[in-house]
């Protein structure tokens, strides 16, 4: 589902964020991306979300070669990936419902379908009663779950998450992780960047560890 082949990412100041990285994640797999701050986790996720492009090497996601994807096709490519951010990236002047509905509105889904799917998605993350609230009125864990509901509402084949438990206490973090596992069980490929080793060591999924932009360890 996600293939990296000898991928380099150099920034203009000669700093090499990724060097010669190769790995792949199978369809329907759930995997973690770990490593110290500055090891290149964020850069790697940015390459998958096409926020940035590799300087060298090939990135293949869902059978599309991102190295050659033209700019105008990027929006349509991104609709195949649900992204969960550490700081949620919610729109604070819209209700929870409107935030979650955003990907469907962008895709031009019809009104009734949007209502049905947003409610299904909020139900899944346990926030069905909060659809009329503004994000600011929710706790950190709840905001994160709104972000997850938004990421999965259009049923993308791939779910990416960047430190989704970064600001949460251990118990909430476990809840969030089990939520990701539930999506993985219905066939979604899940790839999560995290440094919460205590938590992920208790889970049976593969870990890909980066060190200074290189693949350090896989288990």
């Amino acid at each position: 589902m996600i293939f990296f082949t000898d991928v380099y990412k150099r920034y203009s100041n000669r700093f090499e964020a990724l060097s010669g990285l190769s790995f792949h994640i199978n369809k329907g797999e759930m995997a973690f991306l770990t490593g110290h701050s500055g090891a290149g986790k964020s850069t790697l996720l940015k390459l998958i979300a096409l926020i940035e492009r590799s300087s060298h090497g090939q990135v293949l996601v869902n059978n599309q070669n991102l190295t050659r994807l033209p700019k105008r096709k990027i929006p349509y490519y991104r609709r195949q990936i649900g992204i969960v951010f550490q700081d949620h990236n919610l729109l604070h002047d819209r209700t929870v419902f409107d935030n979650v509905a955003l990907p469907l509105i962008i895709a031009g889904e019809n009104h009734r379908e949007i209502g049905r799917r947003v409610r299904a998605s909020l139900d899944k993350v346990g926030l069905l009663g909060k659809e009329r609230s503004l994000p600011i009125a929710l706790s950190g864990g709840e905001q994160q779950r709104v972000g997850i509901a938004r990421a999965v509402v259009n049923r993308p084949p791939i779910l990416l998450a960047d430190e989704p438990t970064g600001n949460l206490d251990p118990e909430l973090s476990r809840d969030i992780m089990s939520l990701f596992e539930q999506f993985n069980q219905v066939g979604t490929t899940v790839f999560i960047a995290t440094h919460d080793l205590d938590l992920i060591n208790t889970l049976p999924h593969r870990q890909i560890t980066l060190d200074s932009g290189r693949l350090a360890e896989q288990r």
Binding site: Y76, R78, I106, A107, R150
Partner: peptide, 16 residues
């Protein structure tokens, strides 16, 4: 600005 970034990340075209 930040809102535009978010909307683009969830797949909005420039027209949208």
């Amino acid at each position: 600005q930040s809102e535009i970034r978010v909307i683009k990340l969830v797949g909005a075209t420039n027209a949208f």
